[in-house]
Design a protein around this nucleic acid. Structure first.
Length: 838
RNA sequence: GCCCUCGUGGUGAAAUUGGUAGACACAAAGGACUUAAAAUCCUUGCCCUUUUGGGAGUGCCAGUUCGAGUCUGGCCGAGGGCACCA
């Protein structure tokens, strides 16, 4: 066996890759982008998977003649740098730069086809300068506003979170229970694009349906109408929003949010204040959210029913009505809304059924009926279907001028102020007269101060002695800087544009360049960004195209691929402490011992690798041990890319062994002695290789890299079995070279080394599949729908010829000879099925 | 509660989109080589049969079809998203 040192070979080809990029000036453009990493310290297996998938595609496209842009950068602002700097007494900048250096060298070890000349880092002032510029442009377009609202406060990170960053009532990163706090904040008015963000989802044909659905639900469009209710004996009018105006005759109460303007009337009412306080408390814990009881505060006021002059409807404040959705007021129709039903039951309010559920009207409802049916008990709406009743009542309401139809979105504006140091400074200043204005663009970038005390209480920039003192350039007046920094999701909302012209000086991007490269042809990353990052990036693209009129695209990512996670079993020792896999010795699939003292280890289920559970495997260790190609090979081989994959050490060991065999076979062929030649054997060999080229090509196009790899195992076996057959060296080597080219995207180092061994000079083309080389096909022979034989015959034979062949040569003949055949189902080149009457 | 996705060997998974179920890999068992081990190679994988063969079989129940892992309806189970959104 001819051995190869992967480490040496990989170093050699990495030098080659760093000089030879994937540019094909004549080719069609292909922008291949993987989500850029946060520089946390070292790369993890999730990165390996993400970037290997991207690399396969980038190289494949290049080999097929595309002009490929394949950049990489760093999502370099963020809280961990501040935490780390407090612990290690390192400046966040130093910490981040060190991490970038390490991770960059690790990524290079993987043999990725990245053009490092395009590298960007979001914490560089050359990057965030342009981000500040975009911010000011957005401000000038009315896409930025400052509002005092209740915000999601993360008590661990001591900062504000956007709605999208709260998962099950907890911070997306800290996992701490989020609190409600009233603060003045900067917002991007993402809701100005609600309709576009929703509608354009339909144009994203290359996105997973699942992600589009998640965004659709998040944007949450609903259609209904506003109705004004007069308050009896008062001047006030309560405006409510409903999607079920057809149930207006079933209205039995009005419910208001405790923050509704009408609450001002009760600001001296202690009972109300106590009620309000209890409402603010619910919602702070997950448990409270889950079993939140419907609570109400009776105002003793009544509203007039807009269509029943004699009817009085009690008005309540209720804990389940939100001020920031709709008008902060609803009418309750208990018969047809489960929440209203619970509320009415609790406070003994009327329950009037107005939509027939088909049952007897005398039966008391046990729960709200929300289905379709005919309207009843509703005057002029009686007999109509729900749908018809909706449009009729809205028309009536508009005629009477007591309301209007309205479309509402669940999506809220994106709060972007963060009380942190390590982020992009917000380029706004506060003048002494109270006005707030953007800084002059000529003053950009507004740089972060280098000297900072991160142990100060509250916002570090605010606590800085003089950073915030400044002067308004055009008036010369004293001013104070905004000391909040931008949410780091802003940094990643436009980096894909910057990659197209990363060194462009005077503006965020070169217009011509982005019109050439954008949109991203293939974007690859984790599903966890289905809403957050992907929605924000879409918003940015739409926002920028508002003031850069010549931009030719309105969506950033043409095709999206969401890869699965890398999982591993977790291990605990007898005392319940987590153990790293390399501290554990596996005995068999369900038992293991601790290496240090041979004590028994408890094996947990395979879960996404995480530092807290220590179920991680270090990519660099693996690369050093088995080679980058073996690591790439394994991570692609075991599961389809969109599903989770379980890391297995035996898996990567066998990948390494297989690659050794691939090298050995190449070496063997390079020394092969010339054989006697049989033309027929050669033709069969070539046609088989040809069909493999077709299959590999197809599997890559379908993102079925695990299938590609299974095929390579088959191909290896086939080639090995063919070594001593009557094939000329020329034919054999040419076929082998084709196969090695197919392997370039997967194992670029070894594939190049093998090609070099065969004196191949051109690494930059993809083998072409020739149609119709194979003129034999496999046909299934069925009797009564059961497969009895598979026969290999000439292509395009007709029914009769096949029947003759079967009765002579097939083991299925015993079913057919001397039998009456009732019916024959024949699908050319696929199947023949004889139905015999019994 | 609402919405979505998925159920195939001991395990990860293939299956030309309605046409050979389990490719390929991991693990296991048996065998060959070896003084032995490692490495390597081969075989096996549910039931009946010594073999040739034959049968059952893709979560469960029904349906459509010459033919269903794939299509339809119902049920069961797992995972994910949203959650007082009016």
């Amino acid at each position: 066996m001819e051995r190869i040192s992967f480490q040496a070979v990989e170093k050699k080809w990495q030098k080659y890759f760093s000089k030879n990029k994937l540019y094909n000036e004549k080719g069609k453009k292909f922008y291949c982008l993987e989500m850029f990493p946060y520089p946390s310290g070292k790369i993890h297996m999730g990165h390996v998977r993400n970037y290997t998938i991207g690399d396969v595609l980038a190289r494949y496209k290049f080999l097929n003649g595309f002009n490929v842009l394949h950049p990489m950068g760093w999502d370099a602002f963020g809280l961990p740098a501040e935490n780390a700097s407090r612990i290690n007494n390192l400046h966040p900048k130093t910490w981040t730069e060190n991490n970038i250096k390490i991770m960059k060298s690790q990524l290079k070890m993987l043999g990725l086809s990245i053009d490092w000349n395009l590298e960007i880092s979001t914490c560089d002032k050359s990057y965030y300068k342009h981000q500040q510029e975009i911010f000011i442009d957005f401000y000038n377009q009315g896409l930025v506003s400052r509002k005092e609202t209740y915000v999601n406060w993360d008590p661990v990170e001591k900062t504000v979170l956007a709605n999208e960053q709260v998962i099950n009532g907890k911070g997306w990163r800290s996992n701490a229970i989020v609190e409600r706090k009233k603060l003045s904040q900067w917002f991007f008015n993402i809701t100005k694009f609600s309709e576009e963000l929703l509608n354009d989802l339909e144009t994203l044909k290359g996105w997973p349906e699942k992600v589009k659905l998640m965004q659709k639900n998040w944007i949450g469009k609903s259609f209904g109408c506003e109705i004004n209710f007069e308050v009896e004996n008062k001047k006030e009018i309560i405006k409510i929003f409903t999607t079920r105006p057809d149930t207006i005759f079933g209205a039995s109460f009005i419910a208001l949010s405790v923050d509704h303007p009408l609450s001002k009337k009760f600001k001296n009412d202690n009972k109300f204040l106590r009620f309000k306080e209890s409402c603010n408390k619910t919602g702070t814990t997950e448990e409270a959210l889950a079993n939140a009881d419907k609570l109400g505060f009776n105002t003793e006021l009544f509203a007039k029913h807009p269509f029943l002059p004699d009817k009085k409807i009690p008005i309540f404040f209720a804990n389940f009505v939100l001020m920031d959705y709709g008008t902060g007021a609803i009418f309750g129709c208990p018969a047809h809304d489960q929440r209203d039903f619970e509320f009415a039951t609790k406070y003994k309010l009327e329950i009037i059924q107005v939509v027939s559920d088909g049952g007897s009207q005398n039966n008391k409802l046990q729960e709200a009926f929300t289905g379709e049916g005919k309207i009843i008990n509703s005057d002029f709406l009686n007999g109509l279907a729900v749908r018809e009743a909706k449009s009729k009542i809205i028309k009536k309401i508009e005629e009477k001028k007591i309301g209007k139809s309205r479309t509402l979105f669940r999506l809220k504006d994106w709060g972007i102020s963060r009380q942190r140091y390590w982020g992009c400074p917000i380029p706004m200043i506060y003048l002494e007269d109270g006005s707030v204005v953007p800084v002059d663009k000529s003053e950009l970038p507004i740089e972060l101060p280098e000297n900072i005390n991160l142990n100060s209480k509250g916002n570090p920039l605010d606590a800085h002695p003089d950073w915030k003192n400044t002067v308004h350039k055009s008036t010369g007046k004293k001013a104070l800087r905004e000391t909040d920094t931008l949410d780091t999701f802003v940094d990643s909302s436009w980096y894909f544009l910057r990659f197209c012209s990363p060194n462009h000086k005077n503006s965020p991007f070169d217009q011509e360049k982005i019109n050439y490269w954008m949109p991203v042809d293939q974007y690859i990353g984790g599903i966890e960004h289905a809403i957050l990052h992907l929605l924000y990036s879409r918003f940015f693209t739409k926002g920028i195209s508002k003031f850069s009129k010549d931009i030719k695209f309105s969506e950033p990512f043409k095709n999206l691929f969401t890869q699965g996670m890398v999982c591993h079993e977790s291990y605990k020792d007898q005392s319940g402490k987590w153990l790293y896999p390399n501290e554990v010795k596996k005995i068999n699939s369900n038992s293991a011992i601790k290496k240090s003292d041979n004590s028994k280890v408890i094996i947990g289920p395979a879960e996404s690798m995480s530092k807290s559970k220590k179920n991680t495997v270090d990519p660099e260790t693996m690369i050093n041990q088995y080679g980058a190609d073996a690591v790439r090979w394994f991570i692609l081989s075991d599961s389809p890319p969109e599903k989770d994959v379980q890391w297995s050490d035996t898996g990567v060991v066998s990948a390494n062994k297989f690659l050794q065999k691939v090298w050995n076979l190449n070496y063997l062929i390079s020394k092969r002695e010339e054989k006697d030649i049989d033309k027929k054997v050669e033709v069969n060999f070539i046609s088989k290789i040809n069909s493999y080229i077709f299959k590999i090509d197809k599997s890559i196009n379908n993102f079925r890299f695990n299938v590609s790899i299974a095929l390579f195992y088959e191909i290896y076996k086939f080639l090995k079995d063919s070594v001593n057959t009557k094939i000329s060296n020329k034919v054999f080597v040419n076929s082998l070279k084709d196969i090695m080219k197919l392997m370039i995207p997967f194992i670029p180092h070894l594939a190049h080394e093998c090609l070099e061994l065969h004196n191949c000079k051109n690494f930059n083309n993809w083998p072409k599949f020739k149609k119709d080389v194979l003129d034999e096909i496999k046909l299934a022979v069925q009797i009564n729908g059961k497969t009895r034989d598979i026969i290999t015959i000439k292509k395009d034979l007709d029914e009769k010829e096949i029947f003759n062949y079967i009765t002579l040569n097939s083991k299925a003949k015993k079913y057919l000879i001397d039998k009456k055949i009732g019916k024959t189902i024949f699908v050319k080149n696929k199947i023949i099925n004889y139905i015999l009457p019994n």
